[in-house]
Simulated scan of single mutants.
Amino acid sequence: MRSRIALILIFTLIIGLLPGCGQKAENRELTPVTVILDWFPNTNHTGLYVAKEKGFYEEEGLEVKIVNPGEGGTAQLIAAGKGDFGISYQEEVTYARAEDIPVVAIAAVIQHNTSGFASPADRNIKNPKDFEGKTYGGWGSPMENAMLKALMDKYGADFSKVNIINIGTADFFTSLEKDIDFAWIYYGWTGIEAELKNIPLNFIKLRDEHEALDFYTPVIITSEEKIKNNPELVKKFMRATARGYQFSIENPEQAAAILLKAAPELNSQLVKKSQQYLAAEYQADAPRWGEMKKEVWQKFADFMYQNGLIKKNIDPAKAFTNEFLP
């Protein structure tokens, strides 16, 4: 028995001395990876921060840096090689593909579109017909006009009777104090914030009003070049990221704490409640987190093309892939 134990101890010692063996993960040479966000850190991004904090990226041999966006859209930055992966949305990817900017969506962060047009209940905007005579606060995107018109046409309403004001990146609640009646929001953040502020909202969810508007927002993107030249890196990144979002689905309270650790400037009450809301939305009815459907990409691309938002239609099969989802 003693000789057997001695042999085990000697074997263990030898293994520990061999190059690369017995080393802690932090002593291994990690591959640097940069992820560019679409906006300031929020619960859309929690899975990324969880994967980083829990060591999921490190287990894949990756050293991930998460950065806020700079000038220009995320798609342009990723296509230009300024980052390896980015947070974008189907609208931006479709615009990019129509302009031959070679970016590809590799996961849907949230399975269904949780955005819509929100207004304080006292504005009495209950459906798109009620947009007539009201003031919309937007950021000057042609997409906004197309969506407003499509929804109003469905109800026989006159789009020309909407007063549209460009409020840029102004806060929704601040804008309401400046005679804005309604705006486009993500319910999982601004809608939850309204609940916390005890501001009753009427919320017209886009996916309930038009089938083409149940598009993926946000999505994770990378470049065609990255997929072609380093598919193994994409696989490793997505394997760890999927674990991060799965953890967030199963443990929203812990996930919220991790996000708040990374971004302590955020409202903790808002983050916690938003995380609870998104825990049920990240995967929703999909067979796995991140999976996307061709018909969703096709319908939304057709909508954009038919409304003159893109000069040419795109091949949806080239705009996204589920290949790298674990």
Rank of each mutant, 00 (worst) to 15 (best):
I66K: 03
V67F: 08
V67W: 02
N68G: 02
P69L: 07
P69H: 07
P69Y: 10
G70N: 07
G70L: 12
G70Q: 08
G70I: 03
E71Q: 12
E71T: 07
G72C: 06
G72R: 11
G73D: 13
G73V: 06
G73K: 12
T74V: 15
A75V: 15
A75Q: 13
Q76H: 13
Q76L: 15
Q76R: 13
A79T: 06
A79L: 09
A79R: 09
A80Y: 10
A80T: 11
A80I: 08
A80P: 07
G81L: 00
K82C: 01
K82S: 14
G83Y: 10
G83D: 10
D84R: 13
F85N: 09
G86E: 10
G86R: 08
I87R: 01
S88C: 09
S88F: 10
Y89A: 13
Y89S: 10
Q90A: 12
V93T: 12
T94E: 03
T94D: 00
Y95L: 11
Y95M: 10
A96P: 04
A96R: 12
R97D: 00
A98R: 10
E99T: 01
D100F: 05
I101Y: 07
P102C: 06
P102G: 01
P102I: 02
V104N: 04
A105V: 00
A105E: 01
A105K: 00
A105P: 06
I106T: 04
A107G: 09
A107H: 06
A107S: 14
A108T: 00
V109A: 11
I110P: 01
I110K: 13
Q111L: 02
Q111W: 03
Q111F: 03
N113C: 03
N113Q: 02
N113L: 05
T114R: 10
S115F: 07
S115Q: 05
S115K: 03
F117E: 00
F117W: 09
F117R: 05
F117G: 00
A118M: 09
P120A: 02
P120V: 00
A121Q: 13
A121W: 07
D122P: 01
D122M: 02
R123Y: 04
N124F: 13
K126A: 07
P128F: 01
P128N: 04
K129D: 08
K129A: 15
